[in-house]
Lab assay of single mutants.
Amino acid sequence: GQVHVGDTTYHFPNPEEARKFAEKAAKENNLQVTQHGNTFKVE
């Protein structure tokens, strides 16, 4: 799974890890998570 936060892309071998990371980043920054397959975008 990939997580895009601003201009930075994080790669995770496990989509579940990617999702947890995205949700945590979104919560900390008052942002939203959008999911496209195994790619998550925090914005």
Rank of each mutant, 00 (worst) to 15 (best):
A18T: 01
P15F: 15
T39P: 01
V5L: 14
P13F: 08
V5C: 14
H36Q: 11
G1Q: 04
K20R: 13
V42Y: 01
Q2E: 12
N38M: 04
A18E: 01
V33T: 03
K41N: 12
T9Y: 11
H36T: 10
V42G: 03
H4M: 14
K27F: 11
A25H: 14
T8G: 04
A18Q: 01
H36N: 12
N29K: 12
K41L: 15
E28P: 06
H11T: 09
Y10S: 03
H4G: 04
F40D: 04
A18C: 07
Q32Y: 10
T39R: 08
K20L: 12
N38K: 04
F21A: 03
H36C: 15
E43S: 12
A25S: 08
N38V: 04
V42P: 04
Q35D: 03
D7N: 14
V5H: 07
H4N: 09
E16K: 06
T9D: 05
V3F: 02
G37M: 04
T34E: 05
E17F: 05
T8V: 14
N14A: 04
G1K: 03
H4I: 15
G1W: 15
V33P: 02
Q35C: 07
E43G: 14
V33D: 01
V3G: 00
E23V: 08
V42W: 00
K24D: 09
Q2N: 08
V3H: 00
F40E: 04
F12D: 01
N30W: 06
E17S: 09
F21L: 01
Y10A: 03
Y10D: 03
E23T: 06
A22M: 00
T39Y: 11
V5Y: 13
F21D: 01
H36E: 12
V5N: 03
T9E: 07
E17M: 13
V33C: 09
G6V: 04
Q32S: 12
G37W: 02
Q2L: 14
V33H: 02
T9F: 12
D7F: 09
F21M: 02
E28R: 11
A25W: 15
K41P: 05
G1V: 11
L31H: 08
N38W: 02
H36W: 10
T34M: 06
F12T: 01
R19Q: 08
F21K: 00
E17G: 05
E28W: 10
Q35N: 05
E23G: 02
Q2R: 13
R19G: 03
R19D: 02
H11P: 04
H36V: 14
R19E: 05
